[in-house]
Write a protein that binds this DNA or RNA. Structure first.
Ligand SMILES: [Zn+2]
Ligand SMILES: [Zn+2]
Ligand SMILES: [Zn+2]
Ligand SMILES: [Zn+2]
Lengths: 255, 255
DNA sequence: TCAGGACAAGATGTTCTG
DNA sequence: CCAGAACATCTTGTCCTG
């Protein structure tokens, strides 16, 4: 059977430690376990560990990220207590933060750095609620077909949907904020939201490892600025006036 | 001299192939060149290649991403034709962006993504001027002893010095801005600067691969929030009132 | 068929030499 | 002081045994 290793995609694999794996990956896993190795990823815990060229396979595998390789072994169900004929399915991790498509979840799966967690206790609550907001976004924006490229008008519509989620997030984090008069809430939120949008876009860029792209919270990409300001109905670029006229007013949120 | 390797931060470094480097990195570079090695990064071409623990240094270095290590060697000016007594500064004709200490320059050495470069021509000028500002910062903040941890009062002082550099940067980028009346300049800059500070801090976090730390443009770290609000003269924490009283007013810049 | 030990090849840091 | 060769150590895939 011309099967492939579920870890590194090397061809000709058998069952090792409960997963479809080549001998190289099997040996790597066995030694990692028996030697109690601790690895540290130098990238972002999502390194590619597939062998690209069988000709240079040896050299290639020598340069694999050990942390990510070991993590993939585990995620594919490898286990030293697994015995032949006792193949387990890949582990299913609890559904955690998932900013749009597959993307990168590893960063957000991490715990808060101890110093921030201890010195700013509210961060723990904010992070948990942020998780909820991300899950809500998956529902709210699910029909918008992420990942794709969108234009200006669509980004405005999405923003109008998203601002409510952010308001809910904040309300869930700050009890005192909820008790404020509506007018005060709007003033505060107005001052907060524009900065937050900037920060969150950079945050998403960072965790998606796409520093040269702009991805909205909905998971939609607004990378191409020419098509971004293109009006598909008239097949022209939007004029400055049209753009300014439709700049969203997200001032009044709480009412 | 207790110097550090500009590639991997290992202590005790000498000059090798034209850059401050430890022997390990020197040997790695020499063999890469003489053997004409081609490496492929498994991450995103921005892997961390600093040695974290000297105890496990050997194991640590064995797991470095070769592609990124070699790239960093080149970016630090390593060259086989360099001979002792003929030390060259880091590659790249004009001195390139170097946000504080060695840190990570690879990201900023890159050209702009073509779509951004073509669709927003001013970015090229802004990037070049940003480079100049970073260089200026090296001079302006050189006596502040980066990298180190600082407290609130110091961050205010640094900010007062830095805001002028940012104002110069903007003035150098936008001709029309310079022609505005001073009052208008201040209003515009005031609206711009608070957002810019947020963005730049996240930007620095990103390119320094330290998403859990806050590093100011001067290169100083403000990671520990307990010591950040500590008043060293009285050995107490600052009160809320003291903090608010000294919040910097960076509104009037142009005069 | 597969786990584990032994071996060989490759990669990297250290020491030595000039 | 530094480049390069030689050597030792660590990593990893293959082979062999049970
Ligand atoms: Zn494999
Ligand atoms: Zn990795
Ligand atoms: Zn080094
Ligand atoms: Zn890399």
């Amino acid at each position: 059977m011309p099967s492939t290793c579920s870890i590194c995609r090397e061809k000709s694999s058998e069952t090792h430690f409960g997963a479809e794996a080549c001998r190289g990956c099997a040996t790597f896993f066995r030694k990692s376990v028996t030697m109690k190795m601790k690895y540290r990823c130098r990238g972002n815990n999502d390194c590619d560990i597939t062998v690209k060229n069988s000709k240079t396979a040896l050299s290639d595998s020598h340069s694999m990220c050990r942390a990510c390789r070991y993590a993939k072994c585990l995620s594919m169900g490898m286990n030293v207590s697994n015995r032949p004929g006792n193949i387990r399915k890949p582990k299913s991790t609890p559904k955690k933060i998932n900013l749009d498509q597959p993307g990168t979840t590893s960063f957000l799966l991490e715990d808060l750095p101890p110093n921030f967690r201890d010195q700013v206790p509210i961060l723990t609550k904010m992070k948990a609620n942020y998780q909820k907001m991300v899950n809500a976004r998956l529902v709210v924006h699910q029909d918008e077909g992420a990942p794709r490229v969108l234009n200006y008008s669509e980004s405005v519509e999405q923003g109008m949907k998203d601002v409510g989620l952010v308001a809910d997030w904040i309300s869930g984090c700050f009890e005192d904020f909820v008790k404020l008069p509506i007018q005060q809430k709007n003033v505060l939120f107005h001052n907060f939201y524009s900065k937050f949008c900037l920060l969150e876009v950079t945050f998403i860029s960072h965790i998606k490892h796409a520093p040269d792209r702009i991805t909205l919270p909905s998971g939609i990409d607004m990378n191409n600025l020419n098509t971004f300001y293109h009006d598909p109905e008239r097949d022209t670029q939007m004029t400055k006036e049209e753009i300014e006229r439709t700049i969203p007013l997200r001032t009044i949120i709480f009412e």
